[in-house]
Each structure stands twice: as C-alpha cells, then as structure tokens.
Design a binder for these strands. Sequence first.
DNA 1: CTGGATGTAACATACATTGTTACAGGCAAG
DNA 2: CTTGCCTGTAACAATGTATGTTACATCCAG
Lengths: 140, 140
Amino acid sequence: MAANSRLTIAVHALTWIALAQRRGQEWLTSEQVAASVNTNAVIIRRSLGDLRRAGLVEVRHGAGAGWSMARAPEDITLLQVYDAVEREPLFAMHRTEPNLECPIGRGIRPVLGVVYEQADQSLRRELGRTSIADVLRDCL
Amino acid sequence: MAANSRLTIAVHALTWIALAQRRGQEWLTSEQVAASVNTNAVIIRRSLGDLRRAGLVEVRHGAGAGWSMARAPEDITLLQVYDAVEREPLFAMHRTEPNLECPIGRGIRPVLGVVYEQADQSLRRELGRTSIADVLRDCL
DNA sequence: CTGGATGTAACATACATTGTTACAGGCAAG
DNA sequence: CTTGCCTGTAACAATGTATGTTACATCCAG
C-alpha cells in the first residue's frame, strides 16, 4: 500500500495542542502546529478540519483565532483519530469483477470480506487502547 | 491509504490453484489463473513470483509449464501471503523530520512506532488464523 | 529443435498523497 | 464598523504507487 502519514500527522498535532494547553496556551494557530510537525499550514488545517468534523477539536475564527481540544486528552483514543482521518479500507478487493463462471471468482469476495473485517477490528481494538494523554506522557 | 488489492489477488490465485489441484490438474498457467481473477497474465506472474520467492508455490518452465502449490493449502496462512506480497508498513511516519526543538517533535516517532508495531502484530495474528484451505472451503 | 510459457523490462494510465499559492469569509479587538 | 489575522477551501504541481499492456529474451519437456 502507499502508506500515508495522516494518522501520524493528526496525532502529532493533537498531542502538541494538548501540551500547549497544559502549559497555559489555550488556542494554537495552524502555523504554530505546522512548525512542530514541520509541514505546510494547509496540511494541518486539513487534518484538524477532519478532527473538528469528528468532534475532537474546536476552532475559533477572527482575531486570536486557532485550534483547541474539544475533549480531555484522556478521552481521545488513536482509534477515534484513525476514524476521523482515514477513508480507505485496509485491503482492497479486485478492481475488476472476478470471473463469476469460476467457483473461486464467485465465492471469494464475501469470504475475504469476513477475513478483512476481522483484521480491521483487531487493528481498531489495538488503536483504541492508546489515548492522546498516553502519547503525550510517553513523549516527555 | 491507497489500499491495494495484492493480498486479494494472491489469495485468489492460490485458492484457485488449490481447487484445480484437488480436481486433478497439477499445473496451471498464468493465463488460466488470470482468467479466474479477470486480469492480465503479467499481473498474475508478478504475484505468483512473490509467492514463489516466499516458498509458497512452485513454477515449472518449458513445455507444459505452469504453477503449482509448494505446500498443502492447510499449511499456508493469509499471513504468509501478506508477508510475501506486501512491502509497505500500515502507517507511515512524517515524510519530513519533525521539528526536534519541540518536545513532541522529538518524542513522537518512537512512541508511535510502538503503537504501530502493536497494531501491526494484532493484524498479523488475525491473518494467521485463516488458511488457504479455509478460504477454499468457504468459497464452495 | 521447437513451441509454449515464464520472467522481466519498458511504458501508459489512473489515482492518492503531499505540498504550495491564492483568496474569500469570519470574527475579536479596538 | 473597520481592521487585521486566521480559517476553509479551491486549484494546481510534483511525486509515487498500483495496475494494465506490449514486447521479448530465456527456459525446457517432448
């Protein structure tokens, strides 16, 4: 797969906002977050936009604008972040429909669907075990 | 992620070869496999080539050439297939090094590395539970 | 030898990811 | 109610990956 870094970017941004807030800085701009992640501010706005739609962060407009946690870092798991930023499934099926004349071509998609579903759930269970607060603690 | 279908294609090919052998056809050409998967024969040769390097199938050249299982379908798990065909990790780190002046920028990569490793292992455990024989049985 | 099939290079196409610039729109502060 | 800063998003470029396709050298059972 062309592994992407969305989860990494989003978790980094969240953890940095959590640390800043603990230090008394309530609102961070996308520029400030981008400086820590070392990327373009638009990338951060896109990522935090996903997190906002998932209810994990809040945004404030106008002068003194910026981003803030919508929940305590203890109450945000990497699974929630994953769901917020990731669209594609882990494994894709055939791009073209397999040959339905063949028993395997007919049967394989539902069979693999079940296996992929179990694999996905076990991955998600694992991501659900770690919170942003855990990441922040281990970073320091 | 740009989810790819390599695991799907490889499992389909293997399962089809396993069924053909059960029906008495020892060697299958890439054309014959491609006909069931409904793709180009070169795609199949590339996929089966990966499986051959992993010791899961055998190839025969010359006249009457083709592919055959190197082990019983019961002894090939989807995890082995996954390892044979998949190169990229599940989650990528930052493409550019994060800002090391920032505590999060310094600490986040090893922390995420551990989390991603656990997620990967739990995914692999799940894939290890299903064999090609299981897939074949459920296809019929 | 010969014919059929593999192994692989080379190339085309489509699409995802990331980065970049530009700009309309929102809003707190004065 | 204007000003200035920042968000939200479109548009585009650059790069990389996945898949498909053609072509051809190589291999080997018969």
